[in-house]
Amino acid sequence: MIMVDMLSAILVSGIVLGSGYALMASGLSLVWTTLGIFNFAHGVLMTLGAYVAWTISSGGGLGLGLAAGVAVTVAALIGAGILIERVVVRPFYDHRDILLITVMTTLAAMIFLQNGIQLIWGARLKQLAPIVPGTVQLWRTTISAQETLMIVLAPIVLAALWLFLSRSRIGRGIKAVGQNADAARLIGIDVSRLFIITFALSALLAGLTGVLLGSVRLLTPEFGSEPLVKALIIVIFGGLGSLGGTIAAAYLLGIIEATLTFFIGIYWTPSMIFLLLIVVLLFRPQGLLGKVVR
């Protein structure tokens, strides 16, 4: 019985972690597959989402409630995503070294936004009220209802994202641009419009992760830093350019992290995860589900 309880606890907390990682990493992966760059400001967009939602909805802020909080957060994140694309990415589209340049510019945007958040909201810890209060019993393990919401919501959001990319005209256009931007322009696709949509969508996913995690963890200006690093690992681990690989890797990493935390403790877990990444990349340089690029 104790054995079953232990496995259940590991599995449940692994899936909770995996749900957050999947939402976070899919946004990062979307920008990578479409534009071929890593957006290092992705983590701070998650932080921004949580702070904006706190300001609008919480009693410590404007106290306008959940619905207003979500609406304003969505608008703010779409705006922030578009702004980052416009200001720090767009000027370098025609540049040969766009990948390296945007590492610098998006890191700059990250620091700028992080310090901006510190200036506006201060360093004092904040926490969002859970969207659904209470606790839930899941496979003999008790977790908060908010974490259950994450477990349920993540697959729905990811399935919607997948449907959007594979079925809608805009989504297919985004995939076409990711494969060959010149060919996409040639067949009459407005490439820069799709870059903007991609960034807005990615920012929205980061913001959603922030709102969901903002009641489970405490808000600080560095709230998004650790999830950003995890998301980077997941995108590489899952295979660059594969959304399915990213999602699979997110859940796998969640479960591995929960297992390691249980057995070796929280202190050594992050380094063990990096070690694992290195080992995987030694044997599969293309990542878990990535295809070898010829």
Binding site: A176, Q179, N180, D182, A183, R185, L186, I187, G188
Partner: peptide, 16 residues
């Protein structure tokens, strides 16, 4: 492109 001027490329320009 939509106005009616299309081109081919020397390099491959299709969706592989």
């Amino acid at each position: 492109s939509r106005a009616g001027v299309l081109r081919t490329f020397q390099k491959d320009a299709e969706f592989a």
